[in-house]
């Protein structure tokens, strides 16, 4: 007889799942243009709204959009909302210092980009309405990456961060009636 052992009452089981997402046609096109230093969107024929990044459809009318609807937008825009983040430390956390992430509505776009890091301005001066411009990474440093729904990861692989452009603040009315 084997030695008597206490019954197992609890065990630890580490689980993980891996997923592979294929890039969409519109996502690949958006990424390729970013690597060239251009930001593109799709302009819906039905609503006139410009989606950046393009999704292949218009959220307001449900109509598909295609390469025919492609437009280029500016790399200057306006902060429409922001968060000052105090990074707490956990496994995988790469941030150690306070930083700002903002939603930026680019000139010519109707939908705001998420996760735009704002620099070269004191935290207390960051505000909705602040005009900003992109600081692009050098072409050799721009990386192909995943194009998520809000474009944040693709943008940050080609644009290092955003800084005040020195232009006067935007009129709040000018940023109303867009997609956030």
């Amino acid at each position: 007889m084997a030695e008597q052992q206490a019954p197992v009452v609890m065990m630890e089981e580490i689980v993980s799942l891996e997923y592979t997402t294929l890039a969409t046609d519109v996502g690949i096109r958006f990424m390729d243009c970013l690597i060239e230093g251009r930001i593109i969107g799709h302009k819906s024929k039905q609503s006139g709204l410009v989606y950046v990044p393009p999704k292949g459809y218009c959220l307001m009318t449900g109509s598909p959009t295609t390469a025919d609807d492609e437009v280029e937008v500016s790399d200057h825009g306006v902060v429409t909302g922001f968060t000052i983040i105090e990074p707490i430390q956990y496994p995988g956390q790469e941030e150690t210092e306070r930083y700002v992430q903002a939603q930026v509505l680019l000139d010519g776009a109707s939908s705001a980009l998420g996760l735009c890091r704002i620099q070269d301005i004191p935290f207390e001066e960051v505000r909705a309405g602040l005009r900003v411009k992109a600081v692009w990474r050098p072409p050799e440093d721009r990386q192909q990456t995943i194009v998520d729904s809000w474009g944040g990861r693709a943008i940050s692989s080609c644009i290092q961060h955003w800084v005040p452009s020195g232009e006067p603040d935007a009129d709040p009315a000018s940023i109303a009636k867009n997609m956030y």
Binding site: L22, A23, T24, D25, K55, G56, Y57, G62, S63, P64
Partner: peptide
Amino acid sequence: QETRTEAQMLVESINGVL
């Protein structure tokens, strides 16, 4: 293996029933 997003596939399906 579909390259379109689920939302893109649904745009086609929903527009189909409309």
